[in-house]
Amino acid sequence: MSISVRYPLANSEHPIAKAIVKHAKNRLPNHKTQTTNDLTVNEFEVHPGAGVGCKVGPKTVLIGNKRLMRSYNIPIGLEVETYFSDNEKLARTCVLVAINGKIAGAVSVTDPVKPEAACVVSYLQTMNIKTVMVTGDNRSTATAIATEIGIENVFAETDPLGKAERIKELQVRVLL
Rank of each mutant, 00 (worst) to 15 (best):
L175Q: 06
C119A: 13
R6V: 01
A106Q: 06
A164E: 06
T110S: 14
N42D: 05
S122C: 06
E43W: 12
T82H: 14
V132G: 05
V95I: 14
T126V: 02
C94E: 08
H23M: 13
A146D: 01
I99P: 03
G77W: 03
T60G: 07
V80A: 13
A106C: 12
A17K: 11
L170Y: 11
G101I: 09
M133A: 11
E88G: 14
N128R: 15
G49Y: 03
T93H: 12
N87F: 03
V5E: 15
Y83T: 14
T40C: 01
F155M: 10
V154W: 12
Y123Q: 03
A17P: 09
V21N: 11
S140G: 05
S140T: 09
A24C: 15
T60M: 09
V41T: 07
C119G: 11
E43C: 10
E165W: 02
N30H: 14
S85D: 10
N128I: 08
T60P: 02
Q171D: 00
A98H: 08
H14C: 10
A104K: 14
I103G: 02
R166V: 00
V132Q: 02
K55P: 00
G64D: 07
A10T: 03
C119H: 15
M133K: 06
V52W: 03
R166P: 00
R173C: 04
M69V: 05
M133R: 05
N138G: 11
L175H: 09
T143L: 13
T35C: 13
G64L: 08
G49F: 04
K22P: 05
Q34I: 08
V174W: 08
A156V: 05
L124G: 09
P58Q: 08
L68C: 01
S108G: 01
I145N: 01
T143K: 10
I167M: 07
Y83C: 12
I145D: 04
R139G: 00
I129A: 05
I129E: 06
